[in-house]
Design a protein around this nucleic acid. Structure first.
Lengths: 324, 324
DNA sequence: GAAATCACGGCCGGATTCCGGCCACATCTG
DNA sequence: CAGATGTGGCCGGAATCCGGCCGTGATTTC
């Protein structure tokens, strides 16, 4: 009968009724000694459940649903949005502990607790009907985000080791400016004191982060907003490709939805799109879905590559004829 | 670290997310050996929680949807993650009413307000240091997701107008099965009663959604999970395309690694590949990476499509010259 | 049909936890 | 003040747990 977990679950169920119970009563119910019951209550608190007690005659144990955090007065849409937001953030999470993605995954299954009874039911249904794909990726340490946030606030220089794309590690001392959440990744926009320039770091590639005692002077941002700076692709290594496409802006935006693209309308039927890609090959699928005339404005290399590819594709295709 | 109860609670939380996990993944998450994980699952079942499993590649553990779990409580990281998630979703959102973005904004305010003081500071600083680039995209109506969730639960047939990729609208009556979040979009996996087959709909392209009074009989899923079905792209009739490529078989196999392809060598430098694709557009990225001469053996339609696309790509490309 | 993947569960020995009992103490009610 | 009731330290014996090992069986992939 030494099944702690079972007892805790039973205790939780019992206390959930809202009634209050004396220690003796609970002990009898769980069939353990009062001493063990006390320990169980202690454990429950350890897991974060607020159990209120009162000594003296008429004393009791009671589970206080949301005394620390009162049930939120969400409306339906807000509850829905919360679940969706968590699901979106959970996507891309890793199995490692301590990441925000993982925390979001956990929170996803728990929001009920904080909703008023009326919505609890609804949230549970919503969650049941939803599924989320979770491509395994590097997770972002929740701790790092918090540390960086503090450093940004206090204008403290931070130091860390950074693993570049190639895997080469380097030591950095930077003035953290903003953190940007972009396409389910976290980035830090900072002034790299060693390189004397602005740099964008992927937070999940930061190691051994520590805040120094050195305070830095505010510095004007290289762009209007940090997000814009990031989007503009000052984050090196990727290529910015500008295209003109004979299709409406909406259609183009849709085709490039999975990419990092800015779309602008030229006329109703022509659009201009600036997209960041690792290599030109990735342009093809969205372009093919548009299946419209395309002109590469820049860079030269991509234009040449696409021309060459088009030639190989078109040049040989007509040669073989075959039924079936 | 031998805290069975804590692990069981954590395990419930994890499985509650609705995803499925491999044993190894869960073991890593809980920081125990796989053997212990198996024991934990066994315990879970002992307490009445239905955990479904499957052996073999792609095996998993999953909590059967809809099972009641004890009330679970947020920890600090989870609360923080919730705020971050809401902030990320709120950003870039339109001011229009009824969208999830707008609801997320409201929800953020409320959660923040009720957070314990210690977390409020942390959250406030985090938010200050953050920016988000959620693309403005078409706002998903929060209402639709909730209505669909209820319909899924009640097995009610729903009707709506669907704007296809081409913009053509069609009227649908479907049996909603699950909603899947994939790459920051929401999809509905449903049985289309009109077409007599499974279909995947993008929730943001659904208009005039209404629940009917007709109840449908459960139908076996075409895949293990809705997310998997979506990922596998079984939603369309796939086409078998046979190509001849001027590249070694190994290189070809590598390029098509993500696809469902059979590769055979013709000579050392030429290969033949038979690949199953949803639409011809998906052929382009692997072909571009090979960047070799290609001949479409069959079907005729794909050859014509590729030729046409190549023409549009090559035909217009040389027009503009520009340095920079 | 062979190979790889993955869940399953028995067994073992050593480490850890748990339990009940006992006790001094704090609190609250009447 | 007296009695009821919650609190938590300590102790020693008992029960549980854990990781590792290994053979089994289901299932998918090639």
């Amino acid at each position: 009968m030494a099944d702690v977990t079972g007892r805790i679950l039973a205790l939780l169920t019992t206390l959930q009724s809202g009634r209050s119970f004396t220690g003796e009563e609970l002990a009898a119910r769980l069939d353990v000694s009062p001493r063990t019951l006390r320990r169980d209550v202690e454990r429950l608190r350890g897991y974060g459940y607020p159990v209120s007690t009162r000594p003296g005659p008429g004393g009791h144990y009671r589970l206080v649903a949301g005394s620390a955090v009162p049930p939120l007065v969400f409306d339906d849409d807000e509850a829905t949005a919360t679940l969706l937001a968590l699901a979106a953030m959970a996507t891309g999470g890793s199995a490692e502990g301590g990441t925000v993605e993982e925390a979001a995954t956990r929170a996803y299954g728990k929001v009920d607790q904080y909703l008023p009874a009326r919505l609890r039911h609804r949230a549970a249904r919503l969650r049941e009907s939803l599924e989320s794909t979770t491509p395994p990726g590097p997770g972002t340490a929740a701790g790092n985000l918090a540390v960086l946030a503090d450093a940004v606030r206090d204008r403290r220089i931070v130091a860390f080791d950074y693993r570049g794309r190639t895997g080469r590690a380097s030591s950095r001392r930077v003035e953290p400016h903003r953190q940007v959440h972009h396409r389910s990744r976290w980035y830090l926009l900072a002034w790299d004191t060693g390189r004397g320039d602005w740099r964008v770091f992927r937070t999940d590639r930061v190691d051994g982060l520590r805040t120094t005692h050195d305070v830095y002077a505010p510095r004007p941002l290289p762009a209007d907003t940090a997000a814009e700076y990031l989007r503009r692709g000052l984050d090196k290594e990727r290529t910015r490709v500008v295209l003109t496409v004979a299709a409406p802006a909406a259609a183009v935006a849709d085709a490039f939805a999975e990419h990092d693209a800015e779309v602008g309308a030229l006329t109703g039927e022509r659009s201009r799109v600036a997209v960041m890609v690792d290599t030109w090959q990735w342009l093809l699928t969205p372009l093919a879905f548009l299946d419209a005339e395309v002109t590469v404005q820049e860079p030269e290399g991509v234009r040449a590559a696409l021309e060459g590819f088009a030639g190989r594709l078109a040049g040989k295709a007509p040669v073989v004829r075959q039924r079936s």
